[in-house]
Design a protein around this nucleic acid. Structure first.
Lengths: 335, 335
DNA sequence: ATGAAAGCGCTAACAG
DNA sequence: CTGTTAGCGCTTTCAT
């Protein structure tokens, strides 16, 4: 049916290996024959069979992407699609394909990972969202399989990862608020099981602590990434003691906070989101948010993994990448 | 390194072909040897090499997914992630893998399709979002390559597709509004190049027409899927002539409409979105929206394609699937 | 019911 | 610089 390397070889009057060398762009091939082979390929509309190449090469040039699916809202969160796009951009640039799987829990995660690895489908794995105690990281590390994780792993020794400096980002936001006189600042975050939540919480605490403001545990709430969590969290906090500002770890949470504030008619409470999602400007008041550059995170993750895959010498490159954040001020912090 | 079929064969004292038959669950294998082979696999921690199988089988059990990337907001739209999840669920159930690519335009689309096909990486292709004149559909149809499209293609003859009944869904919404006395109803839609926009627009027109309401072209706006489009569209419409209701073809657009309405202080204008995204309930007023069951769309698309791939006999199954919609009423239509 | 052998399409020594 | 040969790991006739 479709032309194979043999057909091309015949057509060009060379051996299959010569054709193979042309495909691989091997330098030791005379220009003359190269031309001839290329012409033959063209004529026969030849395209290398990637499967056969993979089998012979023991490399598929594809990466496996593990998507979390635990929480309905977590996945609706634009963060993931942005990261995926970033991954794609670098992968395509380097001629890599991406496969993806959803999983509902850590056990399934591991299953998919094993399936990817055992079946030999992928050359490396990308993990989205690092948990505090992450079995996947543990597993992949133990078997020395190439992977990169989006989010700082708890034990980052000898694992590739990319993340924002979440500690610093939140620290800066809270400090900036305090510099304008805000004192009673509450915190509503996602699941405590995620590293990102903890990092941001630490930034929050450090900022308060530095200015000698006592940390009130009733002002700290963590649950999940949802508007509902933000909505109910804000109501609880307001009922406890009306704060001057509420910082959150995600725009989705902040949306819920805004709703609660509106209902309670407490519009002077400042609100800050994270991720600077596309709807943040369309809230009323428009939501101030920390832009975490999600696409860049994905891009750098793919880069870290692919580069390490292709760098046989194992040169001592850094094993992580920190993506800059930027605090975007809008109406919700200027009331 | 890892065990191959030969190792298992030796361990179990059988030939490689016997092991292969066990893997394929071939009926003509004695239970005794089957047990023995299974035990050997277990012992050696054997896992079939999917690449090698694919090469021999000429089938990869993976599907290629083409994601549109034209519009920043289009891709941030949760619709796609929901469809992807649906696709994944059925694919995983049937043991298929999914590869994805983003493209920025139709030319790139075709390139990716060719790359998938020529490289033999995938067994079939899933197209997201049908354009009115879709070169990808044309191309795939011409070469008789297996594919399914999400969204009704213009010429749906002999192509697999799944979609909502967009005409009917919009028709129902508008009719329902008119039954409660609304007369001046404006329409703000996405790009005219998409089938979905046109189908919904037709439903809108038909509903008005049936009730003898003249269609005012100034009440019909189409541009892109963004809050900005909704925001500016609504302002333009209001300045032209204040309507009683604005129907849109996407929640994102509706969010922009809500913002404009708030600014203009015209809160009695009813607003309707489409897709019933997770933020719709969190607008104020909460947004009435048509639930299109995006995950189901993805699931059925994968099902249509995979089933057709596996059904060698080409039984005359239907080539399309219509997913139900449901109008979810919230505050934005009950003012 | 099981084995031997050829082949899927490509790559990689090794020779020359 | 190019050809020969073996082999990647699995499947599949064709025998027996």
């Amino acid at each position: 049916m479709t032309a194979t390397i043999k057909d091309v070889a015949k057509e060009a009057n060379v051996s299959p290996s010569t054709v193979s060398r042309v495909i691989a762009d091997n330098p030791k091939i005379s220009d003359a024959t190269k031309k001839r082979v290329l012409a033959a390929m063209e004529k026969l509309n030849y395209h290398p069979n990637a499967i056969a190449r993979s089998l012979a090469n023991k490399s598929t040039k594809t990466l496996g992407l593990l998507l979390p699916n635990t929480d309905e809202d977590l996945f609706n969160n634009p963060f993931f699609t942005q990261v995926m796009r970033g991954i794609s951009i670098y992968a395509q640039k380097k001629g890599y394909y991406i496969m993806y799987s959803y999983s509902n829990n850590e056990t399934q995660d591991i299953e998919f990972i094993k399936s990817y690895i055992h079946s030999k489908w992928v050359d490396g794995i990308i993990l989205l969202s690092a948990r505090q105690e992450d079995k996947c990281i543990e597993y992949l590390k133990n078997i020395h399989y190439p992977f990169v994780v989006v989010g700082r792993p708890k034990d980052s020794q000898s694992v590739l990862w990319v993340d924002n400096d979440n500690f610093q980002a939140m620290y800066n936001v809270v400090t900036s608020l305090m510099e304008r006189g805000y004192k009673d600042i509450a915190f509503i975050g996602g699941p405590q099981s995620l590293t990102v939540t903890n990092d941001r919480l630490k930034g929050y605490k450090k900022a308060l602590w530095e200015r000698g403001i006592e940390i009130d545990e009733n002002y700290i709430l963590t649950s999940e990434f949802s508007e509902l969590a933000g909505y109910e969290g804000a109501k609880r906090i307001i009922e406890y003691k009306v704060p001057q500002a509420i910082v959150t770890t995600d725009d989705i949470i902040a949306f819920g906070v805004l709703k609660a504030i509106k209902e309670k008619n407490m519009q002077k409470i400042a609100v800050i989101g994270f991720n600077n999602t596309f709807l943040a400007p369309y809230q009323s008041p428009s939501l101030s948010s920390v832009d975490i550059n999600a696409e860049q995170i994905g891009y750098q993750a793919a880069k870290l993994l692919i580069d390490s895959l292709e760098d046989k010498e194992g040169n001592n490159k850094p094993t992580y990448y920190i993506v800059d954040t930027k605090f975007i001020e809008r109406e919700s912090t200027q009331l």
